[in-house]
Design a protein around this nucleic acid. Structure first.
Lengths: 191, 191
DNA sequence: TTGTAATTAGTACCTGATACTAATATAAAG
DNA sequence: CTTTATATTAGTATCAGGTACTAATTACAA
């Protein structure tokens, strides 16, 4: 045994897996140094273990986290309000983009659709602030990134501070979503 | 030569910035094709604009959010995943902040609650990508900004690629949300 | 027409690999 | 001790997606 910290093959490969699992940003060269073996050994190990090369690993991590960066925090109304009759109806449009979708399938994540619908429903009732009490929603077909979602909201009934709003979202004449929202208007003194 | 879609330098560089801003995963070659110029022109543009090469861009995206997600694999999740049994159940925590709430009432907007629930539901099923098919949700009481929302998801039934997941969210022992999600798993194809 | 900016072409080199061949070291078995 | 199997190392050619640089060509405006 020449070099001090030398491990058995199986042992090394297990540690390799662990190591790359919580730090994918390591080159073969780094690994070779770490395990006191040649770079070729590391490559054989990766081959046997089915671990992709550094650049692939980094790319995967990047893709995975990419969508998350642009989340839907903060925006008052999601989509562009293009028509509004307070207390009656409203229309909003949301152009979907790749960052709203799953990278692999290009299908827009549900909460973006929901958010457009809910925020339109809230805009449409004639009250300063509203809270969604109950809602019953259905996604009818997937939305592709790039699709333009047209949401139409209609106030169907008002009982006290409860507002019943139906929202339908279409993409090119095809309905992709419908939802029934019961929104509770809150008066400022209420907590 | 007057190749059809040719733009002025300034124009092209502006579009280049925009383009890379919401999709950093593009090679110089792709860009050259897109703008009908040579690869060298693109490289001059990047040089002038101080845009790093593809691999650097990808690496930055990967590093940006890496620390946050490192423990769990494949989670684009809203909130922090603190427990997960794939295919069975999961728990996530989301600390709400004022920017998630209505400024007047300090009440957290519904779609943040929904998003936490939906993304937890998606995390919990043992499939790479899922699409929310139908969901039935109910907000039980308002959430104040600053509240810590604890979401618990449970897979109650699996039929083919349909996964029925119940999610409950609590704030200090009080249930504030419940939802039944039917998630449709999509089998991943290689990219 | 001429001068300048913009674009293109081409070369050498870089990193972090793959894919392959061949040689050598080490350990176990006969 | 020798043979054999396994593990490791060495070395070469090739790749993608670049950098860095030089030189030539094209576009356009004065």
């Amino acid at each position: 045994m020449k070099t001090t910290g030398r491990l058995s093959k199986a042992n090394r490969q297990q540690k390799l897996l662990d190591l790359l699992d919580n730090d994918p940003f390591v080159t073969d060269e780094d690994l070779a140094d770490k395990f006191f073996v040649s770079i070729q050994t590391i490559r054989l190990d990766r081959l046997e273990l089915g671990i992709p090369e550094l650049r692939e690993r980094v790319k995967k991590v990047a893709e995975k986290n990419y969508q998350k960066v642009r989340s839907i925090v903060g925006t008052e109304i999601i989509g562009e309000l293009i028509d509004l009759s307070l207390g009656e109806r409203g229309i909003s449009i949301l152009e979907t983009t790749p960052d709203m979708a799953f990278s692999k399938t290009n299908i827009v994540r549900g909460h973006h659709i929901f958010s457009q619908a809910e925020s339109l429903a809230m805009s449409v009732i004639d009250a300063e602030v509203a809270l969604t009490g109950v809602s019953n929603i259905k996604y009818l077909s997937p939305v592709q990134a790039g699709d333009k979602m047209v949401a139409k909201a209609e106030v169907v009934r008002v009982r006290g501070n409860k507002h019943f709003v139906h929202v339908k979202i279409h993409v090119n004449q095809n309905q992709v979503f419908r939802g029934k929202f019961i929104l509770i208007a809150i008066h400022s003194r209420e907590v």
